[in-house]
Structures are given as structure tokens and as C-alpha cells.
Nucleic acid binder design. Structure first.
Length: 1133
RNA sequence: AGUCCCAUAGCUCAGUUGGUUAGAGCGCUACACUGAUAAUGUAGAGGUCCCCAGUUCAACUCUGGGUGGGACUACCA
């Protein structure tokens, strides 16, 4: 006895999940799949590291399903797809989580808790949910190597980061500069952008803005502006929304190519004559009609001509270093608002700082009593009080008379609790002061959106802080160029969101003033004159040795570290985190001590460096690095565009002049079923563990990937998962069960010699053709990283074609009799479909497909592999695709559905045979096609014969429809008219038109010739018949039920009833019976005539008729035939 | 504020290079089938293709401008 195909009681997907997982474990399937076949080589995939300090959510299932699908597909294609898991372990979320659980704030670190203890807590906390993550990974079927993950806090990982930073340093891409960071004077702390993006942080506030007037200095450079002016002074105007920064002004910026006008007008406050420069384009805005100011343009100039002109300091409180108060040019200057001239205060603006640096304009700094230089506003948000300033500095640089009244004032009233509401702001007072001096043109209140501190609810100040930057702007063009070679899914994220981001790139601020993260490997002398960037532990060890020699350190923490030994033990001899690195003091070339810059680096650098750091490059994997870089494929949520996607791209461009990834899918968000963001707080978050536990991973994956394109947001609705389960999984499983049931009965094993396809019946060749078409499409879609259409195509094939048409129409072929060639052909065809579908769908739904594959293969032994995931992805056979065959079957499906609809319309059930259908045929081709599927249709709709009607019969009503696509370009504006004329043709005209193949249309007295190729002629109706038409197809049904047909119908009814009775009575399918039917006039004749037929169908030895009185046995049943109750007795022999 | 995405039936989604009856599934209603049966089929109802303007003989489709939802980024004076 040969092996049987397993049959199951029902579809239990969670059980399939667990069984298959066990099978994978037992067979070590994942590890064995990691190999290259047919010399295909590597397909490089990068895993974006999640942070294990939070529980995984359902959205993680989404991106991981995408990643897994592609990786499994490529594996099946023969590539070796290594997948190293990774953990992102640094960063603010981790720190905030620890602070919360320890009940401390940032200020407590270093006092209530040591940095060492704090970081130890972070290190522990960050891997808190590792188990949950691994559990989810396993149960959702995400194949990734979790045994050897990369961990960003690992010393080896950090060593690579240091190496990268040093490479950037050597290329002069790493520099220290100001960054204008959100800073909360009220809280005394800087704010991260993530804190700034908390809801409610941005609020509309009303601030005082002013247009200030700067006096130009008359000298050789500016003479051309003065020589023909009738005023002694020529001024230049600049707009600001932050008048409190005006005392820190040291430059004015104009656009190089912007046109400026010199205008003669009057000062609106003093009425004095005024000659002033501003952008020509903005004249109508500044001198808007309602302002009632007269003006005359007395000259126009390009921005470049104004360059380097000197001007007087606007507010003479503090004297800056030499080189200030010049007009410079800047590419950031626009004429969208303001005056086309930008006030530059390098201490309070990023653009300002850069412009100042570029043109050698110094920032306005003050010398504090502690010897450090600082901006004119202190960290509490005050104009620096006089008592905080260095005395000598005050004596030489500060105008105490003018500055005195303003010193110590807060730049925003909100910072000063003592001020009454509505008190004048510093902005207002400065503006008023300028007004009195005739140095302001306009003062206005303006409402704008401004960020507030989430802790104190007070305005944030943008404040200059020392920071380290990566000069990403230097590589901007190259990044754009390289980005254009990346295959983005969807394309718009690459060209749009990401492309635009690159175009507007600013330098990457790397510094973070935190504790738990990768330390910046830069040591500096106190006067910041000497510095060193460390790029490896070996280098650090040498430097420490030198420091010990110089007497700055007592012992070397790296004393036992062995260079070149990459073992975990060797690297666990030390800790590169704070506070340990901070205890290392190095010695400068001139023998002075150097301390580490206290900053950490942005965690995004950690993750963006993973292509290098996961390999501990270049300390390891130096020779084979080209096999792991760049990635062929990555996938993450679209929210990573400016995060991981960018940092990967930036680092790869800067270090390797290469893309980091060649293909990318960025998926959208996962929302709840109402379209709201999922959040634990709202309680609408879906727990992936519960869902997978209850429904299995396959339906969840399938639903996520086929319901909508992955880059659209998905509204996750559980009923969608259930629908998919019923519709696709249920059908696929049923099809398998059907196959297994009969194959086992017939002893079909799949080992039989294949019936050549050309000898198989039309319908087998049809489904094989469709199957090959499917293979082609699915392969193309997967190759294009277009998962959704691939899945949908598989689903359509299984539910529509395989189950609903092929299996349904062929059921009879599997019943009874021996295993003849036709039956064998049917089994083999169905087997091939099931097996192929399991392979095609395996990347998407790895569990059920492996179950089906293994179950099939266990009997047939057709494959040597013990898992579908080890089997090569099949390629389609072009020779087996027969478009005409597919088209014919489509006609059959449509016609059948139309006839069934007609039957429904007149309420004649399908069991009642009907005599004939009529099909209009106006060309031989259609008739040939129809003829090929005739018997299928007739069987499906239970009709005896088909009659072809051509137009010579005169029975058809024809209709001409214009082909707009062809005629439109010809007729142009007359198309509407022409269309109407064509539709208006009479039956005679149509007949003639068709005979001649051409015809003249007369429009507006003009004749146009049209041919039958330019229209579509269909037979729409056959008068007197029941007709249906759809598109080009028309069919008529003869609904006359003759006595003969009626009898046959009745016979079929009896077959049906007797079968039901057999089943109800619990007879075996093979039991023989005797049947007695009540002799009633309405049925007796039919029963007599078709007794043999009924007997054959129901395995009855004989069918007899008897009067009602003879039917008294308790086994007698009553049944309704043709609205009449009939008694039937079925007895087992 | 900027950039990008989305908007088609009650719900979830298709809709090829613009072409004249805008589709599917679910749900609802009715019917049928019943040797795949805790399956299946057929039909019906259900649409201002978000709004406005433009291009065109022709717009769900292309262009512009809005509206609504979402994401990211954000001191450009």
C-alpha cells in the first residue's frame, strides 16, 4: 500500500504554524537555505535594527513581512541571502525610559545617580524585550539570523563607528561649529527635535517685527550710491521677526543676482527724507498702496554690486571683533518676504553663522567674567547682565550708557515671572528705541507659529551651542546622483520625499549632550587649539601609553587589549561608553593634556553605519567586504526616509562613494480600522502576538501585503484577516483536500509517468496555460519588488480559475472508474497546480505553503528538498501558454454566467434541462472558438444544444458602436455628431454597411467614409427570445420546457432526492439500494422513462412505482418534486 | 510653514498609454446548488469617481487651484 496524501479535518492555521515551525527546527531549514545555488552568489540584505526597549507592534509585522518575502524569494531564486539581525541600543528613547523607571530626571544624572550606574541601567533596559522580539520574529515566520546579531553598544561596533568618524575627519568632513538648537531657558536645557514634535508644542504667537534701517558708510565702495543722492545718508532696510537679535547683528546679506532699487521716500515716523535700498521686486509690498507712502526709484543695482559695502552698527551696545558690519551675499536670500536683505546675527542663526564664517564676518560675542566667550544673550534668556561680564571687556568694548538699561532683561517676557501680563517686551522696547533714532521703517505685530517647551510651556529659544557636524552638504550633489540610481518603491518616495530632502540638505549635526550612546572620539586641549581623532582601539592604546609617559594617566585601561584579536573576550576588557572614555586623558603633540569632547553622537549614525559596523569593518571582513556591500535590498517604514534611509545613504556616499542599497521598499503606516494611528494609550493598538496566535501568521501576512500596496497606509481590520482566511486560505485548503480525498481513493501518487500535455483535454491545457501565465506574472512582479500584485494574481488564480472553474467543472472526472488516462491527466494537472502555487506563494505565506508542499511531496517524491523554501523557484514554459485557449475559456465562463443569469430571470433551475441556446455568429472565427468550448458550456448550464444564428436569418437586431479611439482623432470636434449618426443607423443600413465594408457618413453636408474596422457591430437582440448580452457577447436561451425535458428534469430531481436520502440514512457511498416511488400522475411517466438513469446514478438495483398505500414503512420520506409532495422509500440491499 | 502620500459603492481595494454601461471582494436582499458541504454559485440594490477651473472631439485618468486625512521636516530674515 502506497503512502497517502494527508487529509485534515479542518483548516487550523495556528496548528499549521506550529507544526511547520517545528519541522523547520528539526530540519534546520533556515540555515540550510543559506547557500548559493547555480552560482547565483549573494543577494545582500540589510536589517534595520529595531530598538528592543519597546514591545514589538503589529506594524513591525508589516515591514518584516515585506523583508521576509523578498529574501525568501531571492533564496528560492538561488541566491545566498544572509540576514543578520541587529539591535539599536542607544539613544534618547532608551534614556527617557530609564529615567522614567528610575524616577529621575536628566539633571539628576551625575548627582543622584552616577553616569556609570545610569549607563548600566540603560544597557540592561535596552534589551528588556529581546525575548518578545525573538518570539514574534519566530512566530511570524521572519527568517533572520538572531543568533549572531549586531548590537550597536558592542565595543567592536563602536570601534567601526570611530573608524568611520576618523575617515570623515581625515576628509575634513567632520568639524566643530555652532548649531542653533532649540533651547528652553526656562528649563535650562536643550530640546531634541523629538521633544519639539510633541503635540501642542507649536503654537501661534504674536510677535513684534520690524524693518530696521542701517546707515551705509560713504567710502570708495559705496560712492556710487551717494554721489547723485539728495540726502546725506543712504540706508539699507532689513526685516526681522526677532528684534532682540538686532544688537547682535554683524552683517547684512543680499542675494547675488537679486535686483535692488535705491528709493527716495520719507521716513514714515519722522517724516524725514529717506534714501533707502531694498529689493526691487518687493517695492509694491513695502510701499503698498494703503501705506500712502510716495517713493521714487533713483537707481537699480544687482546684489553683487552691493557686496562688501560697509555700514554703521545699528545698536552700539557691544563692539565686535574687526570685520563686522559689511554687506555680504548669501544663496539663502529670497524675495518671498521681508525686504530682500537679511539681517545677520551669527550667534542666533544657522544661515547667519555660515554666512558670517564664509565672509569672515565675526559673530558678536562677549567675554564673560569666567573667561569664556558667549553670545549677548545668556542661557537663562537674558541680555547678559553687566556683572557677569569681564571688567576689562566692559571697559574696552561695552557702551554701558546705552546697554545699561537693557542689560539683564529677558528676551521673552515669559521667562520673567515678575513681569505683569501685557508688559512691553524687549522686542518692543528695542523697536521703540530705534524709532526714536530714526532707524526703523516699520514696526508690526505678526502672528506666526513658534515652538514651546513641553515641560514649561514657555517659548523655546534658538540658541547657539557648540556642536560637531558632518559636512554632508559637501557631498550633496553626489548623494543626489547616487540616489537617482536607486530603485525606490514607491518611486515617489525616492524622487520626492527623499530627493527633495537631499536637495535641501544641511550639515548633519552629530552632537548629542547625553550619556548613553557612542562617544565622540575626539580629544582636545582646553584652549581648543590641538585635537586628535581616534579611529581604533589600537590607536587609543598607543595614545594612552604616551599619556602615561607624559604623566597624565596612571595606568592603561587597554593594557591587556590585544590588537588584531577580534574575540568578544578581548573586546570586553574595556567599555567605550561614558564615563570610562571620559577618564582617558591624552597628550597633545606639544605635551599638553587633552580631554574628550563630552558629546555623544547622534544614534542615527549608529544605525546608518551598520553596513560597516555589523561586519566590524575594516578590522574584520576587509577582503570580502564587497560581498556584503552595498545592499541589494532594504525595506522599512516610510518614516525612516530622513532617518535610516538617509544615514545609510550619506555614510556610504562619504565613505565608499557608493549607494548603500540598490532597491528599497518603504511601506506606509499601519492604522486602526478607522484610520487612526494606533497607540497604546488609545487602546486601539493591535497585539501581534494575539493575532498570530489566533489566526496564524500566514493570513496576517497575506492580508497586509495584498490588501493594499505596502506604501499606502493600511487600515488594519481584523475582519479583513478573517475574510482572507475564508476566501483564499479556505479555498486553497479545500482544493488540496479535494485532491487528497480522491487521489487517495484512486491510489494516485504523483509518481505516475506524466501524460504529455498535448494529450490532455482542453480544460487541463487551459489551467496549465493560466498557471504558466501566473508563473510569468508572479516572477516579474517579485523581480520588480511589487509584492501586492503578485499575491493578488495568485489569489485570483486559486479562487477564480482553479477552484471555481477548473475543479468545479471537472469534479466528475475524479469520480468512479479506474485510473485511465483522462483521470490521470486530471490528477496530474491538479497536482501540478497545487504544487506550483505552493512554491509561488511560499515567499508570502511560508507556513501553509510548506505544509502543502511537504504533504504532496511526501507521496510523490518529485522533489529531493524537504521544504518548499529550499526548492528552486520555477520558471514558466512559454510553450504551455496558449492565449487563444485562455480567451476561449473566458468566452465559456462569460456565456455560462450569462445563461445562468437568464435561467435565474425566469426561475428555471439548473437541474431542469433546456433544449437549446442560440448564439449569433457573424464571423467564422468566433464560431470556431465557441465550438471548442461548446460542450463545457452546455454541461455547465444544462442545455442540450447550441444553434448558431447568422445575420442571413434576419432574426438578429444589430447595433453599431463607434470605436472612439480610432474615430476620435479623425473626426475631432465632429466626433459627437459622427457618433450619433453611427448609432442612428437602421438595420438595413447596418446590413449594407457590413456587406460593403464601408459607408459614407454625411455631416454638415460633408461626406466621410468609414469602414467596418472603425466600428464594432454586435448582435444585441433576438426578438422573441430571452437574450443577454455583455460586451461583444450575446446569447439567447430557449426556455420552452417540453414534456420530454420536463421528464428528464424530474428524473434529475429524483436523483438528487435519493442521494440526499442515502446520505441522511448514513449509507456508504458504495452501498446498493432499492427504491420505491409513490405512483403519482405528475411523476410516474418520468420515472418510468428514466428508471435506468436514476438507478445508475444512485446505485439502485431497481426503481419501482407503488401506490401510496403500499408505502407505509417508517423509512418512507416525503419530498417536494415540482410542487408536489412525493413519497419515496430507499432501502439498503 | 515646507515637502511628499492618499481620496472611486456602506467597508477594503482594482481601474493599463485619456475612448463612452467605472469593476472585485466583504456586507445587505433574493434565489440556486449540494458526491469539495462549518464549502459554493447566480442575481439585485448600492457611485456627483472629494470640490472648482483648465486642456481635449472625449477626463475617474492629464494640468492648475482648493478641501479633507496622513507622514516627514522645520529658527530661512
Amino acid at each position: 500500500m502506497s503512502k497517502k496524501f494527508p487529509e485534515y479535518k479542518g483548516l487550523d492555521l495556528p496548528k499549521v504554524n506550529n507544526d511547520v515551525l517545528k519541522m523547520w527546527d528539526d530540519n534546520d531549514t533556515f540555515r540550510r537555505s543559506l547557500r548559493s545555488r547555480d552560482g547565483k552568489g549573494e543577494f545582500v540584505f540589510y536589517e534595520g535594527p529595531p530598538s528592543a526597549n519597546g514591545m514589538p507592534g503589529i506594524h513591525h509585522v508589516m515591514s518584516r513581512a515585506i523583508k521576509d518575502t523578498i529574501c525568501r524569494y531571492k533564496t528560492q531564486q538561488g541566491y545566498e541571502v544572509k540576514r543578520k539581525a541587529g539591535w539599536d541600543t542607544h539613544g534618547l528613547p532608551v534614556e527617557l525610559g530609564v529615567e522614567k523607571s528610575l524616577g529621575i530626571t536628566r539633571e539628576d544624572i551625575g548627582s543622584k545617580i552616577s553616569v556609570e550606574e545610569y549607563n548600566a541601567a540603560c544597557r540592561k533596559d535596552v534589551m528588556k524585550f529581546t525575548d518578545a522580539w525573538e518570539d514574534l520574529t519566530r512566530h511570524m515566520g521572519y527568517w533572520i539570523d538572531m543568533d549572531n546579531p549586531y548590537i550597536t553598544y558592542d565595543n567592536r561596533y563602536i570601534e567601526t563607528l570611530w573608524w568611520l568618524l576618523k575617515e570623515l575627519y581625515k576628509k575634513d568632513l567632520l568639524y566643530e561649529g555652532y548649531t542653533i538648537q532649540p533651547f528652553s531657558p526656562a528649563a535650562g536645557t536643550g530640546l531634541s527635535s523629538h521633544e519639539l514634535n510633541m503635540p501642542g508644542c507649536y503654537k501661534d504667537v504674536k510677535d513684534t517685527t520690524c524693518i530696521a534701517l542701517f546707515n551705509l558708510i560713504r567710502n570708495g565702495k559705496s560712492e556710487f550710491l551717494f554721489s547723485d543722492s539728495d540726502t546725506a545718508e543712504v540706508k539699507i532696510m532689513a526685516w526681522t521677526t526677532t528684534p532682540w537679535t538686532l544688537p547682535s547683528n554683524t552683517a547684512l546679506a543680499v542675494g547675488h543676482d537679486i535686483k535692488y532699487a535705491r528709493v527716495r521716500t520719507t521716513n514714515p515716523y519722522s517724516g524725514d527724507p529717506l534714501t533707502v535700498i531694498l529689493a526691487e521686486e518687493l517695492l509694491p509690498v513695502i510701499f503698498a498702496p494703503d501705506k500712502k507712502l510716495e517713493y521714487t526709484v533713483t537707481g537699480t543695482y544687482r546684489g553683487s554690486e552691493l557686496k562688501d559695502i560697509d555700514y554703521e552698527q545699528l545698536i552700539d551696545w557691544v563692539k565686535p571683533d574687526d570685520g563686522a558690519f559689511r554687506v555680504v551675499t548669501g544663496d539663502f536670500v529670497t524675495t518671498v518676504d521681508g525686504t530682500g536683505i537679511v539681517h545677520i546675527a551669527p550667534t542666533f542663526g544657522a544661515d547667519d553663522y555660515r554666512a558670517g564664517r564664509e565672509h569672515g564676518v565675526p559673530p558678536l560675542l562677549v567675554l564673560m567674567s569666567d573667561g569664556f566667550q558667549a553670545p549677548l544673550v545668556d542661557r537663562r534668556g537674558r541680555m547678559v547682565p553687566l556683572e557677569d561680564l569681564d571688567q576689562a571687556f566692559i571697559a574696552t568694548r561695552v557702551n554701558t550708557e546705552t546697554y545699561g538699561p537693557f542689560a539683564g532683561r529677558y528676551v521673552k517676557n515669559e521667562y520673567d515671572e515678575s513681569l505683569p501680563e501685557g508688559a512691553d517686551t524687549l522686542d518692543v522696547d528695542i523697536a521703540v528705541m530705534l524709532k526714536q533714532q530714526g532707524r526703523v521703517f516699520r514696526i508690526e505685530k505678526q502672528v506666526h507659529n513658534y515652538p514651546h517647551c513641553w515641560r514649561t510651556d514657555k517659548p523655546v529659544l534658538y540658541y547657539p551651542l557648540d556642536s560637531w557636524f558632518i559636512r554632508t552638504t559637501a557631498l550633496r550633489d553626489r548623494m543626489i546622483e547616487l540616489n537617482n540610481t536607486i530603485n525606490w518603491k514607491p518611486e515617489s518616495t525616492g524622487t520626492g520625499r527623499f530627493g527633495k530632502w537631499l536637495e535641501n540638505l544641511v550639515d548633519w549635526n552629530l552632537s548629542r549632550s547625553r550619556y548613553w550612546g557612542t562617544p565622540l572620539p575626539i580629544w582636545m586641549t582646553d584652549d581648543r587649539q590641538e585635537e586628535i581623532c581616534i579611529g581604533s582601539l589600537a590607536e587609543l592604546k598607543i595614545e594612552i601609553t604616551r599619556s602615561i609617559d607624559a604623566g597624565y594617566m596612571m595606568h592603561n585601561p587597554l593594557a591587556n587589549f590585544v590588537e588584531g584579536d577580534n574575540s568578544a573576550e578581548n573586546y570586553s576588557l574595556l567599555d567605550l561608553h561614558r564615563p570610562f572614555v571620559d577618564e582617558i586623558i591624552l597628550v597633545s603633540p606639544t605635551g599638553r593634556p587633552m580631554r574628550r569632547e563630552p558629546d555623544l553622537i547622534d544614534v542615527w549614525f549608529d544605525s546608518g553605519a551598520m553596513p560597516y559596523a555589523q561586519a566590524h569593518y575594516p578590522f574584520e571582513n576587509k577582503e570580502n567586504f564587497s560581498e556584503m556591500f552595498p545592499a541589494d535590498f532594504i525595506a522599512e517604514g516610510v518614516d525612516q526616509t530622513r532617518g535610516w534611509f538617509f544615514t545609510l545613504h550619506a555614510i556610504a556616499t562619504m565613505i565608499s562613494d557608493s549607494v548603500s542599497f540598490k532597491n528599497i521598499i518603504s511601506n506606509g503606516l499601519l492604522l486602526d480600522k478607522n484610520g487612526n494611528k494606533m497607540s497604546k494609550r488609545l487602546g486601539n493598538a493591535v497585539d501581534p502576538f494575539i493575532i498570530i496566535d489566533q489566526h496564524g501568521a500566514d493570513p496576517v501576512r497575506w492580508y497586509m501585503l495584498t490588501n493594499a500596496q505596502p506604501w499606502d497606509n493600511l487600515r488594519f481590520d481584523l475582519s479583513g484577516v478573517e475574510e482572507v482566511k475564508r476566501k483564499f486560505f479556505g479555498t486553497l485548503y479545500n482544493t488540496y483536500s479535494f485532491f487528497a480525498l480522491y487521489a487517495n481513493v484512486d491510489g494516485f501518487t504523483g509518481k505516475e509517468p506524466q501524460v504529455p500535455v498535448e494529450r490532455r483535454p482542453e480544460i487541463d491545457r487551459w489551467i496549465i496555460s493560466l498557471l504558466n501565465t501566473l508563473m510569468k506574472e508572479v516572477t516579474e512582479r517579485y523581480d520588480d519588488y511589487d509584492i501586492t500584485p503578485a499575491g493578488r494574481a495568485i489569489s485570483d488564480f486559486v479562487t477564480e480559475n482553479l477552484s471555481n472553474w477548473y475543479v468545479r467543472l471537472n469534479r466528475k472526472r475524479y469520480w468512479g472508474g479506474g485510473l485511465d488516462e483522462d483521470k490521470l491527466s486530471a490528477y496530474q494537472t491538479l497536482y501540478t497546480c497545487l504544487e506550483t502555487v505552493s512554491i509561488l506563494a511560499a515567499p508570502l505565506i511560508p507556513f501553509l505553503t510548506d505544509r502543502i508542499f511537504v504533504d504532496l511531496n511526501a507521496v510523490s517524491g518529485r522533489h529531493s528538498e524537504d521544504s518548499v523554501h529550499l526548492v528552486a523557484f520555477p520558471s514558466y514554459d512559454k510553450k504551455l501558454i496558449d492565449r487563444h485557449l485562455e480567451e476561449r475559456m473566458e468566452i465559456a465562463q462569460k456565456i455560462s454566467s450569462m445563461i445562468l443569469a437568464l435561467r435565474r430571470r425566469v426561475n428555471i433551475r439548473v437541474r431542469q434541462p433546456l433544449a437549446k441556446i442560440m448564439v449569433p455568429v457573424t464571423n467564422g472565427q468566433f464560431k470556431k472558438k465557441f465550438e471548442a468550448v461548446r460542450s463545457l458550456i452546455l454541461a455547465e448550464v444544462n442545455v442540450r444544444e447550441v444553434e448558431y444564428v447568422d445575420d442571413t436569418s434576419g432574426m438578429l437586431i444589430r447595433k453599431v458602436k463607434p470605436n472612439f479611439k480610432l474615430l476620435g482623432p479623425r473626426f475631432g470636434k465632429k466626433m459627437k455628431e459622427a457618433g450619433a449618426a453611427i448609432l442612428a443607423m437602421t438595420q438595413e443600413e447596418i446590413a449594407e454597411f457590413e456587406k460593403l465594408g464601408a459607408r459614407n457618413l454625411t455631416l454638415d453636408g460633408e461626406a466621410y467614409a468609414i469602414t467596418t474596422d472603425e466600428v464594432e457591430i454586435i448582435s444585441e437582440d433576438i426578438p422573441g427570445w430571452l437574450v443577454a448580452n455583455e460586451g461583444k457577447l450575446t446569447v439567447a436561451l430557449d426556455i420552452t420546457v417540453t414534456e420530454e425535458l420536463l421528464h428528464e428534469g424530474i428524473a434529475r430531481e429524483f436523483v438528487n432526492r435519493i442521494q440526499n436520502i442515502r446520505k441522511d440514512s448514513g449509507f456508504e457511498v458504495t452501498d446498493k439500494i432499492r427504491v420505491v416511488i409513490e405512483e403519482l400522475p405528475s411523476v410516474a411517466a418520468a420515472v418510468r422513462k428514466h428508471a435506468d438513469y436514476i438507478a445508475a446514478q444512485t446505485l439502485a438495483l431497481d426503481i419501482s412505482l407503488a401506490p401510496s398505500s403500499a408505502l407505509t414503512s417508517p423509512a418512507v420520506r416525503e419530498t417536494d418534486i415540482e410542487d408536489q409532495m412525493v413519497r419515496v422509500l430507499v432501502m439498503k440491499v
